[in-house]
Amino acid sequence: MSGNKAFWGIVTAAAVGAVIGLLFAPDDGGKMRKKIKKKTNSLASDLIEALEKSKEKASDAADEIKKEGLEYKDTAAKKAEEYSSAAKEEWNKY
């Protein structure tokens, strides 16, 4: 959840910064549009990169959870087999 808040905080700060930059811009319209386009492309690239990193981290975490789940499943299956064998041995004693 905090990662999501940080993401939206960064996006909001970037938007506010762009608006403030426009308000105090000394350049004419053509130059300003080029600067805005360049900055927008830069921010979009940064955003895409951040999203790809987040996706990669999420994928790695999911793989780790899956691996641990399979390990727990194998351990549980072995324990169940041990208990079943022990119960059969006890049953056969009588």
Score class of each variant (00 low, 15 high):
Glu64Gly: 02
Glu89His: 05
Leu43Gln: 09
Met32Cys: 02
Val11His: 08
Lys73Cys: 11
Leu47Arg: 03
Ala25Gly: 12
Glu68Gly: 00
Glu49Gln: 13
Ile48Glu: 14
Lys67Trp: 11
Ala77Met: 12
Gly17Arg: 01
Gly17Val: 03
Trp91Ile: 03
Glu89Tyr: 02
Asp27Phe: 12
Glu64Gln: 13
Ala80Leu: 01
Lys88Arg: 02
Lys57Asn: 13
Asp27Tyr: 10
Glu90Cys: 02
Lys67Gly: 05
Lys5Val: 15
Glu49Cys: 06
Glu68Val: 09
Lys78His: 07
Met32Tyr: 00
Leu22Ser: 10
Ala50Tyr: 07
Glu82Met: 10
Trp8Leu: 13
Glu49Asp: 15
Lys37Arg: 10
Gly3Thr: 09
Lys79Pro: 12
Ala18Glu: 07
Lys57Ile: 01
Ala58Phe: 00
Lys35Arg: 06
Ser54Cys: 09
Asn41Lys: 13
Asp74Gly: 08
Leu43Ser: 09
Gly9Phe: 04
Thr12Ala: 04
Tyr94Lys: 08
Met32Glu: 02
Phe24Ser: 12
Leu47Gln: 07
Ala13His: 03
Gly30Phe: 00
Lys88Met: 02
Asp46Gln: 11
Lys57Met: 04
Phe7Met: 11
Ile36Asp: 05
Glu81Phe: 02
Ala6Asn: 15
Lys57His: 05
Ala50Thr: 10
Ser59Lys: 13
Ala62Asn: 04
Leu23Pro: 01
Gly29Ile: 00
Lys93Ile: 01
Tyr83Gly: 05
Ala44Lys: 06
Asn92Cys: 00
Glu71Phe: 01
Ala77Phe: 10
Lys39Arg: 04
Glu56Lys: 11
Lys67Asn: 14
Pro26Arg: 06
Asp60Trp: 00
Ser84Tyr: 10
Lys37Ile: 15
Ala61Gly: 10
Ser54Asp: 14
Lys31Ile: 06
Asn4Phe: 06
Lys39Pro: 00
Lys88Cys: 00
Val11Asn: 05
Lys79Thr: 15
Trp8Ile: 13
Trp8Phe: 15
Lys57Trp: 00
Asp60Pro: 04
Glu56Leu: 09
Thr75Pro: 07
Lys55Leu: 06
Ala15Glu: 07
Lys39Gln: 07
Ala18Lys: 03
Lys35Phe: 06
Leu70Glu: 14
Thr12His: 07
Ala50Met: 10
Val16Ser: 02
Tyr83Lys: 08
Leu43Val: 11
Glu49Ala: 14
Ile20His: 00
Gly3Lys: 04
Gly29Asn: 00
Lys73Gln: 15
Glu56Ser: 11
Glu68Trp: 10
Lys79Ala: 14
Lys78Val: 08
Lys79Ile: 15
Lys78Ser: 08
Lys39Tyr: 04
Ile20Pro: 01
Ile20Met: 04
Leu51Thr: 03
Ser84Met: 07
Gly3Arg: 03
Ser2Phe: 09
Ala61Trp: 05
